[in-house]
Amino acid sequence: MSTRMLSAAVAGLAVLGLTVVAAPAASAAPCTDIDVPVARGTFEPGTLGLIVGDPVYQAVQNQLRPRSLSSYRVNYPADLGQPASVQKGNTDLVNHVTAQAAACPQQRFVLVGYSQGANVVDNSIGISSAGSPVGGPVVATIPAELAPRIAAILLFGNPIRSIGREVTGPYQSRTKDYCAGGDPVCQAGGGNVLAHLSYGADAADAAAFAAGKV
């Protein structure tokens, strides 16, 4: 999948009438039962991400009540023009989970990543996104001793799938990786740019999966 196709998917935000703007970074989360760090897609608007993060977080909240939840917006550029964008997100996500785990010994995590943000999550669990259009080598991984506290991983439009890679290893059974039919970002040869913008429809299913793992 070419960078041109990924750019077209980003441009598709305009087709839906969405304004691409930067949102303020979220502060560190309190000691809730479940923390949900979200790595948004390239130039994706919204607090956690209008297409995926916001609806998925709301759906997870609905599924897990009365347990308490918090969210964290991964602090990274989410920019096609910055070659280290994914690595910055990778570092920030790992730092956040590590700090939260130390501050809140009982807290568990549901990791969410969309598009370039899925690459951020891939790298953070030790699956390299190098070779995908907005990917790069792993620069930090969640410490192995914290792995049991990662309850679930929800990925949408994951670019590594277009190069024949997927989540394997200890996190595989806790991962739900959505790739809509024809999505050129996650499906080699895909030609339906609008498919990459469709993942909000999977929010309830993703939340049910996460609830089954918590």
Rank of each mutant, 00 (worst) to 15 (best):
M1H: 04
T3V: 14
R4C: 02
R4V: 14
R4E: 10
M5G: 00
A8F: 06
A8R: 09
A9V: 15
A11W: 12
V15T: 14
L16I: 02
L16V: 08
G17R: 12
L18S: 00
V21M: 09
A22P: 06
A26V: 00
S27A: 12
A28Q: 11
C31Y: 03
T32L: 07
T32P: 00
T32M: 10
D33A: 15
I34H: 02
D35T: 13
V36H: 09
V38W: 06
A39K: 01
A39W: 07
A39T: 08
R40W: 01
R40G: 03
E44T: 05
G46D: 11
T47F: 00
T47L: 11
I51F: 04
I51A: 07
V56Y: 15
V56R: 07
V56K: 00
Y57T: 14
N62D: 15
L64H: 03
R65N: 06
R65K: 12
P66T: 04
R67P: 00
S71P: 00
R73K: 07
V74K: 11
N75E: 05
P77C: 11
L80Y: 03
G81A: 15
Q82I: 14
Q82R: 13
P83D: 07
P83Y: 08
P83F: 12
Q87W: 03
K88F: 04
T91N: 11
D92E: 14
D92I: 04
N95A: 15
N95R: 14
H96Q: 12
A99I: 01
A103L: 13
P105Y: 11
P105I: 07
Q106V: 03
Q107C: 06
F109N: 02
V110M: 08
V110S: 06
Y114H: 13
S115I: 01
S115A: 14
Q116W: 02
A118K: 10
N119C: 05
N119G: 09
V121P: 09
D122K: 01
D122L: 00
N123P: 04
I127A: 13
S128F: 07
S132Y: 01
P133F: 03
G136W: 10
T141D: 02
T141V: 15
P143W: 09
A144Y: 14
A147P: 00
P148Q: 09
I150D: 09
A152L: 08
I153F: 10
I153H: 14
L154T: 10
P159S: 01
V167N: 02
T168Q: 06
T168N: 10
P170H: 13
S173C: 00
T175M: 03
D177E: 12
Y178A: 11
C179V: 01
C179R: 08
G181E: 11
D183L: 09
D183R: 09
P184A: 03
P184T: 05
V185Q: 10
C186L: 06
Q187Y: 00
G189T: 06
G189Y: 08
G190I: 11
G190N: 06
G190L: 05
G190M: 12
G191S: 12
N192A: 08
N192F: 02
L194S: 07
H196Q: 12
H196M: 11
L197Y: 01
Y199Q: 13
Y199W: 03
A203L: 07
A206L: 01
A211Y: 01
G212S: 13
V214D: 01
